[in-house]
């Protein structure tokens, strides 16, 4: 496991240019998440939740403000170093639970390890173990197009298990799922937290609540404690 102890944004503002002019997605937002913590960020559509998540994970460069991955100021790193740090320490569960369409489930789960240059035998063993942990061992050879929405989300979480990250950043991980599938996803997130991961979830789902969770509200790009 890599050694990031926190991820943080400091006084981040982010704007983007739309057809009708400039839009402010985030206004002067500061947030720090420690390893082992479970943070839920909720808010209405268009409040800037996903933007905050991608900025926190070093995927999107904010217009203003600073992003820290551990003690490193993310955007002071070279492109290659930032990508490597992201691959080592962070795992993403995107809204569409994206997977590389041409690779099998097993290869998708092994992908973060493959990108780190880990030996192929070991990566596939770890990927298979992660799939089995989430009860998806039988789907290892399937292609992403053959999976249900719930399976895709759990497989994205299995990818996080296999990668052994410091933080998992999940965007609407239970959205559109039936209650049983949503419960499975939450269980997986809790298992990751139990392994020592920091979890940041952005969601509309007010039912997503776990003991000891920190809840933040994001409204019109501003953050407030829930």
């Amino acid at each position: 496991m890599s050694g990031l102890t926190r991820i943080a944004v400091e006084t981040v503002t982010h704007t983007w240019q739309g057809r009708s002019g400039e839009h402010i997605a985030l206004r002067d937002v500061s947030l720090s998440v420690a390893r082992g913590e479970f943070v839920r960020i909720s808010g209405p559509s268009g409040a800037g939740k996903t933007t905050l998540l991608t900025i926190l994970g070093g995927l999107t460069r904010p217009t203003e403000g600073r992003v820290f991955l551990g003690d490193e100021y993310a955007w002071a790193l070279s492109e290659t170093d930032l990508a490597a740090l992201r691959g080592q320490a962070l795992a993403f569960v995107f809204q569409q639970a994206d997977m590389v369409s041409s690779l099998s489930v097993l290869d998708n789960v092994a992908l973060p390890l493959t990108l780190r240059g880990c030996p192929s035998g070991g990566t596939r063993d770890r990927a298979l173990a992660a799939l089995e942990r989430l009860g998806l061992g039988s789907r290892a050879r399937a292609l992403p197009g053959e999976l249900s929405g719930g399976e895709r989300r759990r497989i994205a979480l299995a990818r996080a298990f296999a990668a052994d990250p410091s933080f998992v950043l999940a965007d609407e991980p239970t959205g559109d799922l039936d209650p049983a599938s949503a419960a499975g996803v939450v269980d997986a997130l809790l298992a990751l937290q139990a392994d020592g991961c920091g979890i940041v979830v952005v969601t509309h789902d007010s039912a997503l609540a776990v003991p000891g969770m920190r809840h933040l509200n994001l409204v019109e790009g501003r953050i407030s404690d829930g």
């Binding site: 492109e79 993403f92 994206d98």
Partner: peptide
């Protein structure tokens, strides 16, 4: 056509040059 796949690879840690 593969922009989502390529973006995912970037998100998972592949650098732009790679």
């Amino acid at each position: 056509r593969r922009r989502r796949d390529l973006a995912l690879l970037r998100a998972l840690g592949m650098s732009a040059p790679a």
